[in-house]
Design a protein around this nucleic acid. Structure first.
Lengths: 177, 177
DNA sequence: TCCAACATGTAACATGTTACATGATTCA
DNA sequence: TGAATCATGTAACATGTTACATGTTGGA
């Protein structure tokens, strides 16, 4: 159920379109949740039918109409209900680690090559997160206060990526030894 | 598709029952993949129908018969095919971080309380992983060599948990400030 | 002239979760 | 006497992925 609740949290800050929300999942929010645009549109439809969201359609001549969603009182209540229950501990799933675990079935160089690809990807992610962090640091104190909690999640993202990269470096050496 | 491939990797090491495999997901393997027992039995059935697994039924008088699965040649081929393609980068999903991100909707003490619960859970996980690590260290050199790759995944699990706990401690202080 | 960004979806399929179901053994 | 472990599943439901579908604008 958490996609619905992620959307509620995002929409509680700012009414937005399905497209906007999908973009947020590609940015910093994507560090802890994400979904394809198809899935987002599907959920928004369901949530609107359930009365959690109101939809304001803005006609556009040259592009598909924009549908701006905002949280209703029922949506607020649903969010509160969800927030008041403890979240289940997060479960990590990483296909690359299965490969590494069963690495004896693949030639070493192939394993190292794939590790390198993942390293490149994680470096890119880290840079993106660090950019977002420097934008945060450039804000005024009052603005920083406003984004205090999102910033805490960003910090986990950053240290997670750093930790992963450190491990990957060691692992790379171990594989080549 | 990765549950099927996790099962192939595990079964390539040792033929096992659905129950055994489910138990492995509760142990160290659970750090990077997991599934409910229902899901495991479902997949084993499908994989057997697809010819990837052979099933040897051991009759037991007092308990349900044990079904011991092993990888067939077709299963080996499927595993190889999967291993030869790059895995997609892992996507992190953590409902607690959504809550933290949208933490302004909850009273601070409630947020801290839930953080504490997660801290307790992560500490437990870390201890479990450290226990497995000390079992590994107690092995002979030749045995250690055999479990070299699984050990690398374990090391990521351990540093990940430590990193999470460090972040959680800082976050706890920031929330109480 | 082609690619990325904007903006929305449907349909088919794959995967995962929750509730229910059975029943013996062993340890506290 | 009650809970945990062993051992297997079915059925209903929820969620997520992949392929397909449409069409404009603005920049390299």
């Amino acid at each position: 159920m958490s996609l619905k609740h992620s959307l509620l949290v995002l929409l509680a800050d700012n009414p937005a379109t399905g497209y906007d929300l999908s973009q947020q999942f590609k940015g910093s929010v994507g560090f802890f949740w994400n979904a394809s645009h198809q899935q987002v549109y599907k959920e928004l439809k369901q949530m609107t039918e359930a009365g959690w969201l109101a939809c304001d359609t803005q006609a556009q001549t040259e592009r598909p109409d924009k549908k701006i969603y905002s949280v209703t009182q029922a949506g607020q209540a649903a969010l509160q209900a969800w927030l008041s229950q403890a979240a289940k501990p997060h479960k990590y799933k990483d296909a690359f680690l299965i490969k590494l675990y069963g690495g004896r079935h693949i030639p070493r160089p192939a394993l190292v090559k794939e590790l390198d690809e993942h390293i490149a990807h994680h470096k890119k992610t880290l840079h993106k997160l660090l950019e977002i962090e420097s934008e945060y640091h450039a804000l005024s104190h009052s603005q920083q206060k406003k984004f205090e909690l999102p910033y805490l999640t960003l910090k986990l993202g950053i240290s997670n990526e750093r930790n992963w990269l450190d491990w990957a470096q060691e692992t790379r050496e171990a594989l080549n030894a």
